[in-house]
Design a protein around this nucleic acid. Structure first.
Lengths: 136, 136
DNA sequence: TGTTCTGTAATAAAAATAGTTACAGTATGA
DNA sequence: TCATACTGTAACTATTTTTATTACAGAACA
C-alpha cells in the first residue's frame, strides 16, 4: 500500500461505528478527516464494494456500517483498501541483461509478499470494535 | 516506507555481494537497476552512513560491501532505508474539534508501529547472503 | 596533469495524489 | 410534483512527491 487510503478508510469506519447506525454523509465525514468530500465518497465506494458499509442515496442519505464492528478485522480492511504494493517500486524495470536485474523483481516480490503477510497478520489481530473502543 | 528506496538499496547490496569485493561504480549499478546514477549515489550515501557499504573516490573508484553479507539482515536494511511511514498519510491533519479526528492520528500510529514491527521481524529472518544466494 | 570516479546541490521533468467542479440519478417531504 | 439534499462518478486542475538531469568541486590514479 501507501498513501492514505488505509488511514482514511479506517477513519470513516471508526466514525460510522461511533455513531451506532446513524447515517453520516460524506461532507460530515470529510469535515472530521479534513479532506475533500469526493475523496470520501470514492473511499466509501470502495468500502461498499467490499461489503463494509451501506449507503443511502438522496436527501437525508449517507452511509452506515454494513456489518458488526466486531466482524470487521483490520487485516481485511487492509486487503480491501490496498491498491498497490506495500514495499515497492513506482518505476521498476531492471536491466534484463544483468543476472541480478533479470531476477530481482521476482525475488523482491516474494520477499514483500512474506513481509506483507506478517504485517496483515498483525493487523488482523484487531477488529474495528477494538480500534474504535480505544477512543474516549 | 514507500517508494523504491528499499528495492534499490537491496538491488545495490545484492550486486555488491555477487561481485565478491570488486568495486562497482554508480554507473554500472544504475545500468542494472535502470535508473539514474545520481540516484544510486544518493542511495549509496545512505547505505554508507549506516555502515553497509564502503566507497572509494577517484578514478577506478566505486563501492563494495563494508561487512559480510551474512551479517546484513534485511530488517536492518529496512530501518536504514526508511524515510517515512509505512502506512500513512501524505497529508493528515484531522479535525481537532471532532473526538475521532482529535485522537485518530495517535491510534493509527500505534497500530502502524505494531504492524511495522511484525513486518520487520519477517524481513529480519533473512540476511543479504540468503537473499543473494537465491540468484542463479 | 588529464581522466574518471564520488559526493552533493540545484533544478527540471514526470508521476502520483488530492482537490475541485460538474452533473445525472435518487430519495425525501412540503 | 417540485425544491432540496444527498450519492455516485467523471473530467479536470492543483499540489506534492519522486525521479532524472545538469553541474561541479574534490579525490585517486596513471
Amino acid at each position: 500500500m501507501n498513501s492514505s487510503h488505509f488511514s482514511i478508510s479506517l477513519h470513516i469506519l471508526t466514525l460510522l461505528d461511533q455513531v451506532k447506525g446513524q447515517l453520516l454523509n460524506s461532507e460530515y465525514i470529510a469535515g472530521s478527516i479534513n479532506c475533500n468530500p469526493v475523496l470520501v465518497r470514492k473511499e466509501l465506494a470502495n468500502l461498499h464494494k467490499h461489503g463494509f458499509v451501506q449507503s443511502k442515496e438522496g436527501k437525508g442519505g449517507g452511509s452506515t456500517l454494513a456489518k458488526s464492528p466486531a466482524d470487521i478485522n483490520l487485516g481485511d480492511v487492509y486487503w480491501a483498501v490496498k491498491q498497490k504494493k506495500l514495499l515497492g517500486e513506482s518505476k521498476n524495470e531492471p536491466n534484463p541483461n544483468c543476472p541480478v536485474g533479470r531476477q530481482i523483481t521476482q525475488h523482491l516480490n516474494d520477499l514483500y509478499d512474506e513481509a506483507e503477510t506478517a504485517l496483515v497478520k498483525s493487523l488482523s489481530a484487531k477488529t474495528l470494535k477494538d480500534f474504535s473502543a480505544s477512543f474516549k
